[in-house]
């Protein structure tokens, strides 16, 4: 079997979460003893032509250069129609709705599809990221949380991480200006636990 390449490392949680996203596929051949995957049939074998939504890692095993046991149907978010929408204005699109791991899953998909389709997906992802990047940087520099909520809820996972990193730095800069950076602080584990205690205490009253 060909060696799997793990984009961000074997132990990367984000990568595992992204590779759990489902792709719909249609089986070209009968697969013995795998009938339990299709909950609508009681047959022990998986019939030819049955349509299933399977996670990426499972599809990868049966759809590659060596074997093509299935026909895959790309998720609609990665099709031409949505490419056009993203091209028109990427900033207003709700990427979280299009799968919380839009970029990561998109990159994984490149392993499955033909070169020309893959190139299209890659180009779209890149231009989408480029046009949204500036906005995310602007957002992360703001410290007022009231307006932010709606804007943040449209970011996908990668973007959220980037937003958090930007915000951490913005806060760090403010703290540096106030000369607070050399202050010794309690461990985050202690602080988290203390806040939790307080909440449960007030609930009990």
């Amino acid at each position: 079997m060909q060696s799997d390449c793990y984009k961000n490392g074997y132990f990367n949680i984000q990568d595992i979460m992204a590779s759990q996203e489902r792709i719909s596929c249609k089986f070209e051949i009968e697969i013995p003893n795998m009938g339990f995957l299709d909950s609508s049939s009681h047959d022990s074998n998986l019939k030819v032509g049955s349509k299933l939504d399977l996670p990426y890692w499972l599809i990868k095993a049966i759809y590659n250069e060596k074997f093509k046991f299935v026909n895959i149907d790309l998720p609609k978010w990665y099709k031409k129609f949505y490419h056009d929408i993203l091209e028109a204005d990427a900033c207003v699109v709700d990427l979280r709705k299009m799968g919380p791991y839009y970029y990561d899953f998109g990159v994984l998909l490149l392993n499955l599809v033909e070169t020309d389709i893959g190139l299209n997906i890659a180009k779209t992802l890149l231009s989408c990221f480029r046009s949204r990047f500036r906005r995310i940087m602007d957002l992360s520099a703001q410290t007022d949380h009231r307006d932010l909520y709606r804007a943040i809820s449209k970011l996908d996972y990668t973007e959220t991480e980037m937003y958090k990193a930007g915000q951490l730095d913005a806060n760090g800069f403010i703290r540096w200006q106030r000369r607070e950076f050399c202050k010794l602080l309690p461990s985050i584990i202690v602080t988290a636990n203390k806040n939790k205690r307080k909440r449960t205490d007030s609930n009990g009253d």
């Binding site: 132990f11 595992i16 697969i31 013995p32 890692w57 499972l58 095993a61 049966i62 046991f69």
Partner: peptide
């Protein structure tokens, strides 16, 4: 070779389980 796809799928599942478990304990 009729069993091959089944074996491939089971193997993928084994690998997947291994990865998830190892990540769980490692993290």
């Amino acid at each position: 070779n009729s069993n091959l796809p089944t074996i491939q799928m089971r193997h993928a599942a084994l690998q997947r389980n291994k990865r998830c478990l190892l990540t769980y304990v490692y993290t």
